[in-house]
């Protein structure tokens, strides 16, 4: 059996494509395991969906081609939640609230806070506790 991989995707839906059951097709037609982190998909409006897809590389490729065929834009650069580096004061108040350790202090001597977007599940906890407004959400 081919090895499975996981990829984090952010889908951007133009207004017209919000009514199709995309996740259903990804599971049913391409045998992908879907883990949705965050979604804002409202009929008649543009929408966003951030999710992990797990499956064989081939199936992920096919699945993403299917999504793109619907004029849905796929972003793999992980910009759903970002950190404005200049605003971050590295106080560390976000760290205890981050459930996945995406925000962490690897070196307790410098106490610098690192943000590993790969680990971020976009729960937005950090946005609520950042005193400097350094953590941003695209939607």
């Amino acid at each position: 059996m081919a090895e499975t991989i996981t990829r984090k995707l952010m889908l951007y839906f133009p207004e017209c494509e919000t009514e199709k059951p995309i996740v259903y097709h990804l599971v049913k037609d391409y045998d992908l395991i879907i883990n949705i982190f965050r979604a804002r998909v409202t009929p008649e409006e543009e929408g966003y969906l951030v999710l992990d897809v797990t499956g064989t590389e081939e199936n992920i490729e096919k699945g993403t081609s299917f999504i793109q065929s619907l004029d849905i834009r796929i972003d793999t650069t992980q910009k759903g939640v970002t950190r404005e580096e200049e605003r971050c004061a590295h106080c560390g108040s976000c760290v205890p609230h981050c459930p996945t350790n995406a925000l962490s202090i690897p070196d307790r001597n410098t106490m610098d806070v690192e943000f590993n977007t790969e680990e971020c599940i976009e729960c937005l906890s950090c946005l609520k506790v950042c005193p400097f407004g350094a953590m941003k959400s695209l939607f």
Binding site: A89, V95, R108
Partner: peptide, 25 residues
């Protein structure tokens, strides 16, 4: 506190600063 976890009467409590040690350095 700077280790990220304190022991408070036997239970583990996560610690977060509001001041920035990095900026102080």
């Amino acid at each position: 506190l700077k280790s990220g976890t304190i022991d408070l009467n036997g239970s583990k409590v996560k610690a977060g600063g509001l001041s920035s040690y990095g900026k102080a350095r």
